[in-house]
């Protein structure tokens, strides 16, 4: 065991993992976090706590992670390279681990230009690839990036993202290989809608032996509306939404669109369960946390395994 986190145990035991996501509030107070967490408890193995996602200021990821931990849920602490340098990152990791955080997701971060402080200076002292290596060094060598020894090194289960759809497509699997070489333990992918392209990506990863070295959790986000699908297709960089998805949502009665979105997600999850090289699903039900129990039920991933 590298970290002993629940997520690590589930994956190591060979169970099909199911993780969720929770966005911290744009303000103070634990109530909103606790409320969102209440829908996820018992439904997911770990919940990603986003870090100023879309470059908009929110409660810090580690603080919201701790609230989630108090609620009996295991957080997956996200950290982006945009907002802090290597000193701040390493000290946050020490603090997070000390207070019980065991999983981390290492990300570059959306560019600050998208968010509510477009004038901000982006840090990017290290990139996501280098952040993975830094956390691994802290854990496995017990050393800071600068080389000094760490007293009681943090034992973190190291995650990262992978976008199988962004250009250049042929390079994406090599980028995955680089993240593995940097020391990543698990991967959560970008939201998948183009199954054909994803199958090609996983096939390539299988052929290169990558899926034996890393746990890949397929990213799923159910479409709530036709508008959301169109927005994801045209406005979200690196997102690949085939027209068939939009047509299928348009083809049902207006009151049934969200239900159809969940149905598509469940069909995807069924396929992922059988797909060689896929170790689980990462469900990103954006501002739709209350729907997670229903989705988990319909996707037949309940009850979640409990491992001592």
């Amino acid at each position: 065991m590298k970290s002993g986190s629940n997520l690590e145990k589930i994956l190591k035991a060979g169970h099909f993992a199911f993780t969720g996501e929770l966005g911290p509030p744009r303000g103070t107070g634990a109530e909103e976090v606790r409320h969102k967490a209440s829908f996820l408890k018992g439904m997911v193995d770990s919940v990603n706590i986003t870090d100023n996602q879309t470059a908009v200021v929110r409660m810090s990821s580690w603080a919201a992670s701790l609230i989630v931990l108090q609620e009996g849920l295991e957080p997956n602490y996200q950290m982006v390279c945009r907002d802090r340098n290597r000193l701040a990152m390493q000290s946050d990791i020490l603090g997070a681990y000390t207070l019980g955080i065991r999983n981390m997701l290492c990300l570059s971060g959306d560019h600050q230009k998208f968010g509510d402080h477009p004038q901000a200076k982006g840090v990017f002292d290290v990139d996501s690839m280098q952040l993975i290596g830094m956390v691994k060094k802290m854990r496995d060598e017990g050393k800071f990036l600068g080389g000094a020894e760490i007293l009681n090194p943090p034992q973190i289960f190291i995650g990262a993202a992978s976008n199988p759809f962004a250009d250049p497509f042929e390079w994406r699997v090599h980028r995955l290989a680089k993240k593995i070489a940097s020391g990543v333990d698990f991967i959560q992918t970008q939201c998948i809608y183009n199954m054909e392209k994803f199958r090609a990506f996983i096939k390539q990863a299988n052929e290169m032996g990558l899926t034996e070295k890393v746990y890949i959790l397929a990213g799923v986000t159910p479409m709530k509306s036709v508008g959301m699908a169109k927005y994801m297709k045209s406005k979200v960089p690196g997102m690949d939404v085939p027209d068939e998805i939009i047509k299928r949502l348009q083809g049902v009665d207006k009151t049934k669109v969200a239900d159809e979105g969940i149905k598509i997600a469940c069909e995807q999850i069924e396929e992922f369960k059988e797909m060689k090289g896929v170790a689980g699903v990462h469900l990103m039900a954006i501002e739709w946390e209350h729907k997670v129990p229903e989705i988990a039920e319909r996707a037949k991933v309940l009850p979640r395994p409990v491992i001592d």
């Binding site: 390279c81 945009r82 570059s108 971060g109 959306d110 560019h111 230009k113 998208f114 982006g122 990017f124 990139d127 996501s128 690839m129 280098q130 993202a161 992978s162 976008n163 962004a166 250009d167 250049p168 390079w171 980028r175 680089k178 970008q190 960089p237 690196g238």
Partner: peptide, 26 residues
Amino acid sequence: CAKGLYNGPCGGTNKGSCEIDANQPC
């Protein structure tokens, strides 16, 4: 690279453009 990444590309590459602007090549 708008993020100055040494090990790119990030996941925001959009048809050869940078996520910050469709007119900015990745």
